[in-house]
Design a protein around this nucleic acid. Structure first.
Lengths: 118, 118
DNA sequence: CGGCAGTACCATGCGATACAAGGTACCTGC
DNA sequence: GCAGGTACCTTGTATCGCATGGTACTGCCG
């Protein structure tokens, strides 16, 4: 066990079903490869993730037709698989964004109500 | 199969790990019983849920020591099991609230960036 | 009075998915 | 050529939302 503090807390379960759309959102800006996505999610956004999470996820996105991939050589290291958003993926992202708003509002409404100050 | 349209979309996975804290938040205002929770989550907050979701969830909360329960007779129907928050549960709720903020911000940051309008 | 709907509880099985662990291949430096 | 970093991938496990189905009590209506 000995989880390093990222997966142990409830946040791990929070990522469920959201992470894939975060990835789609990151691809909106342009093509990226998996390792890059992991680093950005970890560093910039505090959404700690490991490769074991991202690869099955990307596999699924590919199977859904939400992303396309191209192999590109790298100057320094093994070739990289770059992911780009498809129109379908872009639409899925937009749909999620529309669901995220009300959902967020509902949760906020439940949490922020400081009714019992007792 | 034939999912009625609430569970099919991505929102179903959104609820993961959040629903239990929504329940805790609802119990903050006072004791409630399971059927009541389902109705409120469904009606008021748009977080569609069914009994099949709530009972295992409450079972878990009880096992974690986050809620206590008391049986009370009802004038019109079978007896009800009322749930109340324990201090531990209250703390868990507070901890989640602290995690929810940054998480929400991170996701918003990724989604709301309307950089590419095309 | 007997069935049916509504209320209220619970358990089981399935599917989705985050994560750890482990494996392969390429490149650079020693 | 071997260690370490980069980069890819697969498999197994645990979690949890949900559908389904089962029990028991109450009240309505035929």
């Amino acid at each position: 066990m000995v989880l390093p503090g990222g997966a142990r807390s409830g946040v791990s379960q929070l990522r469920r079903g959201i992470l894939q759309f975060c990835v789609l959102a990151m691809l909106r800006d342009g093509e990226k490869y998996a390792f890059e996505l992991v680093r950005e999610l970890c560093d910039a956004h505090g959404l700690v993730t490991s490769e074991g999470t991202i690869y099955p996820l990307l596999s699924r996105l590919r199977k859904e037709g939400w992303v396309n991939t191209v192999w590109k050589e790298s100057d320094s290291g093994p070739p990289r698989r770059y992911y780009t958003l498809t129109p379908t993926g872009r639409r899925a992202l937009a749909e999620f964004a529309e669901e995220w708003g009300p959902f967020k509002t509902a949760v906020d409404g439940l949490l922020d109500r400081e009714g019992s100050r007792e």
